[in-house]
Simulated scan of single mutants.
Amino acid sequence: MSKIEKAKGFKHTKPGLWLSIGTSAFGVLSIVKDIRKARSEQDNLLLANAAVGALALVTGTALLVRELRRLGDDDVLLG
């Protein structure tokens, strides 16, 4: 297996999923910043954009957690 193939497969491993969840956590900082800016400027459009971004972040994280649980279910040692 080549290094590129290994790197592509990393996304579907437990460490890869944890890394993805961790990077999603950094997305929260950007969304909080946008929400604060939107409130201070009373910009409803920017607030709506931040809310949609937050919803996408929550949905993406939920999908990653579900994938992580599925990997755990396949593990014979976990029961």
Rank of each mutant, 00 (worst) to 15 (best):
A50F: 02
V32Q: 01
A25I: 05
G53H: 01
G27W: 01
S30Q: 11
L57M: 05
K6R: 15
A62M: 10
L46T: 05
V76T: 11
L45V: 08
S40T: 02
P15W: 04
G60L: 06
L64D: 14
V28R: 04
L47W: 00
A38K: 04
V52Y: 07
I35T: 07
V76M: 03
S2E: 07
D34Q: 07
F26T: 07
L77V: 14
P15I: 02
L29E: 04
G72Y: 13
T61Q: 07
G60I: 04
R36G: 13
V52I: 14
F26H: 06
N49H: 09
D73M: 06
A50D: 02
M1P: 14
G79S: 03
L64C: 11
G16D: 02
D34K: 00
K14Q: 12
G72C: 12
R39T: 06
P15R: 00
A51E: 12
D75R: 00
D74S: 11
I4D: 06
L57T: 03
D73S: 07
E5L: 13
R69M: 11
L77N: 11
L64E: 14
E5V: 09
R70Q: 15
M1K: 13
T23W: 00
H12Q: 13
V28S: 06
V28K: 04
V65Q: 05
T59M: 15
K14D: 10
L55V: 15
A56G: 14
A54N: 00
A25N: 04
K33P: 07
A25S: 08
W18H: 15
T59F: 15
K33A: 14
